[in-house]
Design a protein around this nucleic acid. Structure first.
Lengths: 140, 140
DNA sequence: CTATTTTTGCAACACTGTTGCAAATATTTT
DNA sequence: AAAATATTTGCAACAGTGTTGCAAAAATAG
């Protein structure tokens, strides 16, 4: 169980219905969800711009994490949920199934420490593996 | 020096001006380029749909490699050029500088072999590190 | 409860992705 | 090399997402 109120309070964002719903939806989901998948699960008919702005601000504040799957597809996750200890930016891989398009966090797969050339500074990483998931594989 | 003709011939694509220009542009560039960056370097005023279709087909045929930087940004490289031995899909990291937006292939950084859960099949990977490059760092 | 701040919905525009189709170009065949 | 065939191009058009400004609505602070 998570308290969405606390999350919003910590970063000084107002407690609006849409924000609480977004966090609940992502908390309930075992998969990373796209903006549109989130939109479909919202109870009321909210405006798409508002959703866009909320996903943006929640990501900027570090509450959500955005995974850049490909040009047409980016997904959001609640890292507080998937990572054990509340470590926001634990580096881990993401897997996208090219058949069912589902995206999973491979939280047990931490990439080795990235070594950048002299003088380069790392801020964030985005590691995606594309392939076929077990469920889709068994369908054939 | 590369022979763009051979590349196109190998995959049975017609030798059109735009295709030859695209390959030359990417061959000349030390950086991964976006669709728009390629468009700006084309000599004639080609149609954007044609460019889109050519980048798509060249990527599908394996001549170009597309790097998914983020939702608004994807870049193309000529892997034959950057990888030594003509190994197309050598897994390596990409680095995007968040100040100058340049994208470099970190060809000497090969990620350790990815281990997927039982029953999952890997097809492709896309690993991007975001940060600040040396040049931008020295400007401050 | 009122004043202030933040958020929402709407209109509007930009850019990229995407398709269908006819005209233009490239390739193959004779 | 010209004709026949196949491929590619440019254009129109539409969809989806990103993005901004602004007034109305909602949330928070006093």
């Amino acid at each position: 169980m998570m308290q969405t109120e606390k999350l919003l309070q910590n970063v000084r964002l107002s407690q609006t219905n849409m924000r609480k719903e977004i966090l609940d939806i992502l908390d309930d989901s075992s998969l990373a969800l796209s903006m549109n998948e989130i939109k479909l699960r919202l109870k009321s008919n909210y405006n798409r711009v508002t959703l866009y702005r909320n996903l943006k601000v929640l990501t900027e504040k570090g509450i959500l994490h955005q995974i850049h799957i490909d040009r047409q597809d980016s997904k959001y996750v609640l890292p507080l949920k998937t990572d054990k200890a509340g470590e926001h930016d634990q580096e881990h891989l993401h897997f996208k199934c090219l058949m069912c398009n589902e995206v999973k966090c491979l939280t047990d797969q931490h990439p080795e420490q990235v070594v950048l050339p002299e003088g380069y500074e790392k801020i964030e990483v985005n590691f995606v593996v594309y392939g076929i998931c077990r469920t889709c594989k068994n369908k054939n």
